[in-house]
Amino acid sequence: MVAFLEWFGRLVVERIEEVGRNALFLAEAVRALVTPPLRWRQTFRQMEFVGVRSVSVVVLTGTFTGMVLALQAYYGFRKFGAEGLVGTTVGLSMARELGPVLTSLMVTARAGSAIAAELGTMRVTEQIDALEVMAVDPIRYLVVPRILAGLAMVPVLCVVSDFVGVLGGYFVGVKLLGINSGVYVANTVKYVELADVLNGLVKAACFGFILAVVGCYKGFYAPGGAQGVGKATTEAVVLASVLILISDYFLTAIMF
């Protein structure tokens, strides 16, 4: 009984400690984010990693999402003779929802996991300790550039995704399914508003922040060993994806 209580008590304390560590990490990261100095070189490196190297996968998923949306919407709208609205559907879905969410999920899978793995490895091989010993703040040196990269690059990727998604939808709708191209474009342009796209970008920025922070946190506090790094990576991807989807709901509820 005493053993159980002890075990349970320690469990509770550990959970609370974990929450506190989360909050401290976030607070420290945000503080470092908004106060100079900023490490430009590291930031650009990370932007290149998170942004530029994700272009191909984002273009691929965006295009196919647009295409499949067009296909599905066509199937539904044909029943009402409203094929012309396929463009609207693809445009709105991409701009408001699928562009930001799919982009950030892909970036999570590609870059979020890599962030967690990289920082996890640095933790395990004492590179983070080495930074501290050399009086370099690892939060500023490692975390802030990655968060900035997520914050800045995911919206850019989202624009790309929106665009290729609409192109993919156009291709399927007009070239394969034979919807009149003028009608398709007109309906897309008419019902999709700039505010839809911009709100989508705000979402994307939030998701970028989430995936970077989660990746950094999980990597930063990775437990020892190569196994620990693997575990941290997996957890980072799962946690970031879940948080993105949950926050997506609330962001949507607030903004639209």
Partner: peptide
């Protein structure tokens, strides 16, 4: 290409 140049290109495209 430097990372800066690549990022710059992507942002420009965006």
């Amino acid at each position: 290409m430097s990372p800066e140049a690549k990022v710059g290109l992507l942002v420009l495209a965006g």
